[in-house]
Structures are given as structure tokens and as C-alpha cells.
Measured scan of single mutants.
Amino acid sequence: EFSMMFKHFDKDKSGRLNHQEFKSCLRSLGYDLPMVEEGEPDPEFEAILDTVDPNRDGHVSLQEYMAFMISRE
């Protein structure tokens, strides 16, 4: 189920989600993330990124995504 969600939000089929795609994916899974303006701080989402994209390369791989989802179950 999680990998299907990942593929759905991987719009460019790159095998990874940019942070915006990842945020959309989390919202569709029921995460209550506040709407913030582009460039505004988003501490809740930043905290999630610290876990799922610790190297802050700007992308979430399928492996990082799956590890995050399994840790939340």
C-alpha cells in the first residue's frame, strides 16, 4: 500500500519524492500538516524531514519513505 502511494505521488517517476510531493503524500495519508506559504517556516514538516531525509538532499527515496512509514505504524 505504501509503495503504491509513493508511486502515485512520484509525478516525474524519478524513484524519489521531492519535499512538496512528500508533503502531499503525507496529507493524503491523513497527516494534519498546516498550510504554509512558499518559503515560510514549517516546523512540523521540518521535524518529519529530520527523520525521513536526514541528509537533506531534497528528496525522499522509496527506501527512506518506507522506513518512515513502518516506524509510524
Rank of each mutant, 00 (worst) to 15 (best):
Gly58Gln: 02
Asn18Glu: 03
Gly39Gln: 08
Leu62Gln: 11
Met66Asn: 10
Glu21Asp: 07
Val52His: 02
Asp57Phe: 10
Arg27Ala: 11
Pro54Val: 06
Gly30Asn: 09
Arg72His: 11
Cys25Trp: 03
Asp53Val: 01
Asp10Gly: 08
His19Trp: 09
Phe45Met: 06
Pro34Glu: 11
Arg72Thr: 09
Gly39Pro: 06
Leu29Ile: 10
Glu40Tyr: 10
Arg72Pro: 06
Lys13Val: 05
Ser28Lys: 15
Ser28Asn: 11
Ser61Val: 06
His59Lys: 10
Gly58Pro: 00
Glu40Pro: 07
Met4Leu: 14
Arg72Asn: 12
Glu40Phe: 09
Pro41Gly: 11
His19Ala: 02
Asp57Gln: 15
Phe6Leu: 07
Asp50Asn: 12
Asp50Gly: 04
Leu29Tyr: 10
Asp53Thr: 02
Arg27Trp: 08
Leu26Tyr: 03
Cys25Glu: 02
Arg72Cys: 09
Glu64Cys: 08
Pro43Gln: 10
Ser24Ala: 06
Glu46Leu: 03
Asp10Arg: 05
Leu33Met: 09
Leu33Arg: 03
Arg27Lys: 12
Gly30Tyr: 01
Pro43Arg: 09
Lys23Gly: 04
Leu49Phe: 02
Asp12Trp: 03
Leu17Arg: 01
Lys11Leu: 03
Ser61Thr: 14
Arg27Tyr: 08
Met35Pro: 13
Pro43Val: 10
Leu49Glu: 00
Val36His: 10
Thr51Trp: 10
His59Gly: 08
Ser28His: 13
Met4Arg: 15
Leu49Arg: 01
Ser61Gln: 08
Met69Lys: 03
Gly58Ser: 01
Asn55Asp: 11
Ala47Gln: 15
Pro54Tyr: 07
Glu46Pro: 01
Asp32Ser: 11
Phe22Val: 04
Glu37Gly: 13
Tyr65Lys: 02
Leu26Met: 08
Glu40Gly: 11
Arg72Val: 06
Leu62Gly: 03
His19Ser: 02
Leu17Asp: 01
Asp50Phe: 00
Glu37Asn: 12
Met35Arg: 13
Glu21Ser: 07
Leu17Gln: 04
Glu1Gly: 05
Glu1Val: 03
His59Arg: 07
Glu38Pro: 14
Asn55Ala: 13
Gly30Leu: 03
Leu33Asp: 04
Leu29Gln: 14
Arg56Phe: 00
His59Val: 11
Gly39His: 06
Asp42Tyr: 01
Leu26Ile: 09
Thr51Met: 14
Tyr31Pro: 02
Pro43Ser: 10
Gln63Lys: 14
Gly15Arg: 04
Asn55Gln: 13
Met35Val: 14
Ser24Cys: 15
Leu17Met: 05
Pro41Asn: 13
Pro34Leu: 08
Ala47Trp: 07
Lys13Ala: 09
Asp50Pro: 00
Met69Glu: 05
Glu46Gly: 06
Lys11Pro: 04
Pro54Leu: 05
Lys13Gly: 11
Asn55His: 09
Arg56Trp: 03
Phe2Ala: 11
Glu37Arg: 13
His19Cys: 03
Asp32Cys: 11
Leu26Gln: 00
Leu49Met: 04
Leu17Val: 05
Asp32Leu: 13
Val52Arg: 00
Asn55Thr: 13
Phe68Thr: 04
Thr51Pro: 00
Phe45Ser: 02
Ser61Phe: 09
Met4Thr: 15
Asp53Ile: 01
Phe68Ile: 03
Leu26Thr: 01
Gln63Asn: 10
Met69Arg: 04
Gly58Trp: 00
Arg56Met: 06
Leu33Phe: 12
His19Phe: 02
His59Asn: 08
Ala67Thr: 12
Asp32Gly: 10
Ser71Phe: 06
Asp57Arg: 14
Arg56Asn: 09
Val60Pro: 01
Tyr65Val: 07
Leu17Cys: 03
His59Tyr: 14
Gly15Ser: 07
Leu33Trp: 08
Glu1Lys: 15
Cys25Val: 07
Met4Asp: 05
Asp57Pro: 01
Leu62Thr: 04
Lys23Arg: 15
Tyr65Met: 07
Val60Asp: 00
Gln63Arg: 12
Met4Lys: 09
Leu17Thr: 00
Ser28Pro: 01
Arg27Glu: 09
Asp42Ser: 09
Leu29Gly: 05
Asp42Asn: 10
Ala67Leu: 09
Pro41Val: 12
Val52Ala: 05
Asn55Ile: 05
Glu64Ser: 15
Gly39Val: 05
Tyr31Ile: 15
Phe45Trp: 12
Met4Ala: 05
Gly58Lys: 02
Asn18Ile: 03
Gly15Cys: 02
Asn18Asp: 15
His19Val: 04
Ser14Phe: 03
Gly39Trp: 08
Ser28Gly: 11
Glu46His: 07
Glu37Met: 12
Gly58His: 01
Asp53Glu: 01
Pro54Phe: 06
Thr51Ala: 13
Leu62Arg: 10
Ile48Thr: 02
Met35Phe: 10
Pro54Glu: 05
Leu62Asn: 05
Glu37Asp: 14
Asp53Asn: 04
Met69Tyr: 03
Arg56Gln: 04
Asp32Phe: 10
Ala47Asp: 11
Tyr65Gly: 13
Leu62Ile: 10
Met66Cys: 08
Leu49Tyr: 00
Lys13Leu: 08
Asn18Trp: 04
Gln63Leu: 07
Ala67Glu: 13
Tyr31Gln: 06
Ala67Gln: 12
Asp32Ala: 12
Val52Gln: 00
Ser61Cys: 10
Gly39Tyr: 04
His59Gln: 10
Glu40Ala: 13
Gly39Met: 06
Phe45Asp: 01
Ala47Glu: 14
Arg72Tyr: 15
Glu44Ser: 12
Phe45Gly: 01
His59Ser: 12
Val36Leu: 13
Gly39Cys: 07
Met5His: 03
Leu33Pro: 06
Tyr65Pro: 01
Leu33Tyr: 07
Val60Leu: 04
Ala67Phe: 06
Asp57Trp: 08
Ser14Tyr: 09
Asp42Ala: 04
Asn55Met: 11
Phe45Ala: 01
Pro34Arg: 11
Glu46Trp: 05
Cys25Ser: 02
Gln63Ile: 08
Glu37Lys: 15
Glu73Tyr: 15
Asp12Arg: 10
Glu64His: 08
Ile48Tyr: 05
Glu46Lys: 06
Ser28Arg: 13
Arg72Gly: 12
Asp42Pro: 01
Met35His: 15
Val36Asn: 10
Leu62Lys: 12
Glu38Thr: 10
Gly58Cys: 01
Arg27Thr: 11
Phe9Ser: 11
Pro54Trp: 02
Val60Cys: 02
His59Trp: 14
Glu38Arg: 11
Met66Ile: 09
Asp50Ser: 06
Gln63Tyr: 06
Glu38Tyr: 08
Tyr31Asp: 05
Val60Thr: 01
Met66Tyr: 04
Asp57Tyr: 11
Met35Asn: 15
Val36Ser: 11
Glu38Phe: 09
Met69Phe: 12
Leu17Ala: 00
Ser61Met: 08
Met35Ile: 14
Tyr31Glu: 08
Gly39Lys: 07
Met5Val: 10
Ser14Pro: 08
Thr51Gly: 08
Leu17Ser: 02
Tyr31Ser: 04
Leu62Tyr: 15
Thr51Arg: 14
Leu29Phe: 09
Phe22Tyr: 05
Asp50Arg: 06
Phe6Ile: 11
Leu29Met: 11
Ile48Trp: 02
Thr51Asp: 13
Phe45Asn: 01
Pro54Asn: 03
Gln63Cys: 08
Leu17Tyr: 00
Arg27Ser: 09
Thr51Tyr: 13
Met66Arg: 07
Val52Met: 04
Glu44Lys: 14
Asp10Cys: 04
Pro34Gly: 09
Ile48Leu: 06
Tyr65Asp: 02
Leu26Glu: 01
Ala67Ser: 14
His59Met: 10
Met66Phe: 04
Arg27Val: 12
Asp42Ile: 05
Pro43His: 06
Asp42Phe: 04
His59Leu: 08
Gln63Met: 08
Arg72Gln: 15
Asn55Tyr: 06
Tyr31Phe: 15
Gly30Glu: 05
Pro54Ala: 09
Pro41Cys: 12
Pro43Leu: 10
Glu37His: 10
Leu29Asn: 09
Met4Val: 10
Asp50Tyr: 00
Pro54Cys: 06
Glu64Ile: 03
Ile48Asp: 01
Glu38Ala: 12
Ser3Pro: 12
Asp53Pro: 00
Phe22Gln: 03
Gly30Gln: 06
Phe45Arg: 00
Asp32Val: 10
Asp50Cys: 03
Gln63Gly: 11
Glu64Ala: 15
Leu29Glu: 04
Asn18Tyr: 08
Val60Met: 00
Met35Tyr: 15
Pro43Phe: 09
Asp57His: 14
Phe68Gly: 02
Ser28Glu: 13
Asp32Glu: 14
Arg27Gln: 14
Asp50Ile: 01
Gly39Arg: 06
Arg72Glu: 07
Gly30Ser: 05
Glu1Trp: 10
Gly30Arg: 04
Gly39Ser: 07
